[in-house]
Design a protein around this nucleic acid. Sequence first.
DNA 1: CGCCAGGGCCTCA
DNA 2: TGAGGCCATGGC
Length: 220
Amino acid sequence: MTLMMIYRPLLEYFGPQNWWPMQRGFRPPEWEVCLGAVLTQNTNWSNVEKALSNLKASGIISKQDILRLGENELAELIKPSGYYNQKAKKLRILASFNGKVTRNNLLSLWGIGRETADSILLYAYNKPYFVIDAYTRRIFSRLGLVQKDSSYEELRHFFERNIPRDTAIYKEYHALIVELGKRFCRKKPLCNECPISHFCESAPSGDRDECRSRKFPKHR
DNA sequence: CGCCAGGGCCTCA
DNA sequence: TGAGGCCATGGC
């Protein structure tokens, strides 16, 4: 079993997710992707949309707009996204960053951890970093392809080694993982309706392929 | 009402 | 280097 053998049925089942538009010739505004990447930390995207529409309704879009605003006023506008005091601080720090956009430079900023950094690098700057989140860890450990306690960097390298180095695929795959996690591979999984249960070690045995070759060694 | 969502930081071993 | 506590709103 390969990672692309899982990608294909997910794409067929859910269709292209089109998170941040990824067509040729179109780049989403980098700063707007950064806004979303911070606001969505441990938060439902529908709450992020409320925060983003508050910002837009107030004409607050650009980095300069964010920095012109006081931290408390910014916090008030992004309140629906939760953790609004922390996120207001994080956004001001990120908005004032003017250095070269590298992973290490992003990680050096307070409030930007591995997942947020990789989301920004991939979706805003089109750099081939695979984004790992809680769904990724849950889904692929249930599938039996990785260990539950693998570190972030171990998981990221595992995906980057086993997927074609194509940012369009990275973007789509991560979005599909999130969709599968929300719809089927929940904390209490809905294996009976899951489109990839036949690949899964954790699914009830009736839904599973009993005779399949394991192409990957268990990831440590 | 409880649970959880596209995390990250700090503290304390 | 990892577990646990903290940050917080809104939808179901």
